[in-house]
């Protein structure tokens, strides 16, 4: 079997997977501590928050949208959880209300974006300000400690596997299933490819779009609950700039900003890749002043690799089509 024909290289996420592998090989050679079980586990736990949010963001981008308020949703949900838990002492109540609130905030974003036909970037920029402002108002910008005992989502383990990793795997499997095996996934890709064609085909554009944003809100809420459990409490800078890390993970994973296609698995690998950069710099005891430069260079290389693989795939497609045409005409 020729390597060129192997299915792996036809996947959206093949470029980021290769880049991740290359980075791992380099770090294994450069630092003996890198390829240990404990460090790999640590990398996956660290990636869980970004990866879970990246799954939600992938749905939104595939559907032709974008949500830059997810960091603010994460902060707002964390605030609701912390305040409610402190007020009532009930973990299930705080957890339930927080997740439902995440769903509602996501749905509001989707509804506003589709109903009023305002660019999602602008809509979610507005809701970003509203959600963050509401959270600051709710907490008075104060830190709220969360007891370590209730931090199961962030610090617990099940059958020896850290809960954040299990949740990341679960969300990824559900994410892949929803996008590949359900009518919702099919409709979402159709809406993202061409809203006009989707409208002509009488697809439920409103329902599909709101559902994608709703998933984005839910994953941000879940990520927020993991994060405050790990950090040990609510702090007013939680989630700032996280939306850009999440979008970077999604784009690195092979999802196109123009919508219509993308890969859940690629987004998760993208999130792991981003964590690996910082992990590697820590492992190599790098100077703190080189972090941003190295991050930038590695990201640039990954994007170029992705672009080159796209070009190669397009050429393959043209070549195959030409061969097929030649076959039918002869």
């Amino acid at each position: 079997m020729k390597l060129n024909n192997y299915k792996f290289f036809e996947q959206n996420w093949s470029a980021i997977a290769v880049a991740t592998l290359v980075l791992c090989v380099f770090l294994t050679i450069a630092s003996p501590a890198f390829m240990s079980f404990a460090n790999m586990q640590s990398v996956l736990v660290q990636a869980s928050v970004t990866a879970i949010m990246a799954v939600g963001m992938t749905y939104i981008i595939i559907g032709g949208g974008i949500d830059i308020s997810i960091g603010a949703i994460l902060f707002f949900i964390s605030s609701v959880f912390a305040e409610l838990f402190v007020a009532t002492g009930s973990y299930p109540l705080a957890l339930g209300v927080s997740l439902i609130t995440g769903v509602l905030l996501g749905a509001v974003n989707g509804f506003l974006a589709i109903k009023f036909k305002v660019t999602p970037l602008i809509t979610t920029l507005a809701t970003y300000t509203i959600y963050r402002g509401m959270a600051i108002h709710l907490t008075g910008a104060q830190n709220i400690p969360v007891p370590r005992e209730i931090g199961y989502l962030g610090n617990g383990s099940f059958l020896g596997i850290p809960v954040p990793i299990l949740l990341m795997v679960l969300v990824t499997i559900l994410g892949v299933y929803l996008i590949q095996k359900t009518r919702f996934g099919l409709y979402l890709r159709a809406v993202g490819s061409s809203e006009e064609s989707a409208h002509e085909s009488s697809l439920p554009i409103m329902r599909v779009t709101v559902l994608a944003y709703l998933i984005g809100g839910l994953t941000a809420a879940l990520a927020g609950l993991i994060l405050i459990a790990r950090v040990g409490g609510l702090q007013s800078d939680i989630g700032i700039g996280l939306e850009f890390t999440v979008i970077a993970a999604v784009i690195l994973g092979g999802t196109k900003l123009s919508g219509g296609s993308g890969s859940i698995l690629g987004s998760v690998i993208g999130a792991i890749f981003l964590v690996l950069i910082d992990n590697g710099l820590n492992m190599l005891n790098a100077s703190p002043y080189v972090y941003d430069t190295v991050r930038g260079i590695v990201l640039l290389v990954a994007v170029i690799v992705d672009r080159l693989s796209e070009v190669r795939k397009s050429r393959e497609l043209i070549k195959n089509s030409a061969m097929k045409m030649r076959g039918t005409t002869s």
Partner: peptide, 11 residues
Amino acid sequence: LAATENAFQAN
């Protein structure tokens, strides 16, 4: 948090 985890893995 991530930096502390990574630092303890390496050192």
